[in-house]
Design a protein around this nucleic acid. Structure first.
Lengths: 233, 233
DNA sequence: CGGCATATTGAAAACTATCAACGGCAGTGG
DNA sequence: CCACTGCCGTTGATAGTTTTCAATATGCCG
């Protein structure tokens, strides 16, 4: 479902506005972007936003909710590449090939700002501050892709994942203490490349050691220092 | 050691010219880039090109040789992020933070084209075809970072690695059948996040099954289809 | 309430790391 | 030239981790 986007409303209320494409852009650039990004696409929980290998029309920015980026291997296993939260830009890696590299689905009811690709390229040509912002976002994405799954053991990877989620949540909403994880343990395991039983057992261990508290999907970190330690082996 | 770069010589003889920043750039853009990229930095085998967390002055493009990008964790373990070959651009992920995220060293005697960062940003502002090329390179880098290490088991990861090296080599030099791996098995293990003994045993298995032939550092793939199969589990 | 997805747990099998040892090869210095 | 040394590759045995298979809860949604 497509709805009109009112930049004067949406950007101001968006949790992720500091992370998003308009952040740090000059006034002229903001005008250009507001002309360009006119619609919001509403997707229900589990709805598929795009299929891998279909033509790429748009970048998306998460306004509310969350998504998972994934592909299905020849054995039918779902491989999750990334999770996206408000302020995150989706689809940059697909620009070169002009088709989506991955599929995307909503983890919960989600609103996505639609960024038409051709118009966005023109916006970058016209306005250096938009270009600069885009380059920074790309650069940060590369950093994040490297660090989110860098651990070797399953424990390290789970800790990596939690710390990554936590730091990204903190960037959006510094005051939040409890995080509601929108993805299942199966999806976490598909992201980390370990089995969901292992993920579950590691969560159990972390709970037993009072490093985290987790009830259903709600996560609270009790001992951040120890979580960082474990991440490092 | 810094040497002058003669674009009319170097770009024409560079193995990686199809992959590099000038590829597909219009004439005006090539003039701009040739003005900008005036020097080549020569680094000897094992020499360190840059240290992590130092100020970022330049992007680099590999003209000849190869490099590894790495960082050292709190336990002193070397974590390899990437290997770079002719035509590859180094340092994009460091742009946002204005300092190098990782250290870089040469795997063999290597020549790097020096791309001053501030001048390069200006070049993108001035010339849309340079900008477009840079965005495509960034996009491709994100794809590559995702695919090089996506496997779950050690066997899958090693096959991922080999196929990644092979496809990148093929892009530069389609006629080549034998690949000389410039990195040690230890470095491969530091890249894949598994022990070097495991890497060695997997190579042994692949050799025994006649999927690859490997003598010293020289690699030849005998059964590409099976290598692809193993990568997929 | 019933049905289905998700979470939890145990036991055994498979995989990988760790520890230890040895061989080959290249570079170094006597 | 040759012994020496250090790095890299190779291999075996064992310990530790993770997966696999199986079974049982739990929670959510219509």
């Amino acid at each position: 479902m497509i709805k009109p986007r009112h930049p004067e409303i949406h950007c101001q209320t968006c949790q992720g506005r500091h992370l998003c494409i308009t952040s740090g852009v000059d006034e002229a650039g903001k005008v250009i972007l507001n002309e360009l990004i006119k619609t919001i696409r509403f997707v229900s929980k589990k709805e598929i936003v795009m299929q891998a290998n279909t033509p790429m029309q748009n970048l998306y920015a998460v306004y509310s909710g969350s998504c998972k980026e994934y592909w299905t291997d020849v054995n039918g296993n779902e491989c999750v590449n990334n999770f996206f939260f408000p302020g995150d830009i989706i689809g940059i890696e697909s620009i070169a090939g002009k088709k989506y590299m991955f599929s995307l689905s909503a983890l919960e009811d989600t609103e996505l700002c639609v960024i038409p690709m051709t118009g966005f390229l023109e916006a970058m040509y016209k306005n250096p501050s938009i270009l600069k912002r885009f380059i920074n976002i790309s650069s940060l994405k590369m950093q994040n892709d490297q660090s989110a799954r860098s651990g070797i053991t399953a424990l390290e990877r789970v800790c990596d994942f939690l710390l990554n989620i936590i730091s990204r949540t903190y960037e959006r909403t510094p005051q939040i203490k409890e995080i509601v994880l929108p993805m299942s343990q199966v999806e976490i395991s598909d992201f980390l490349g370990i089995t969901y039983e292992t993920v579950n057992r590691i969560f159990k261990t972390l709970k037993r050691k009072k490093i985290i508290k987790m009830k259903n999907k709600t996560l609270e970190v009790l001992d951040m220092a120890e979580l960082e330690n474990l991440k490092r082996g």
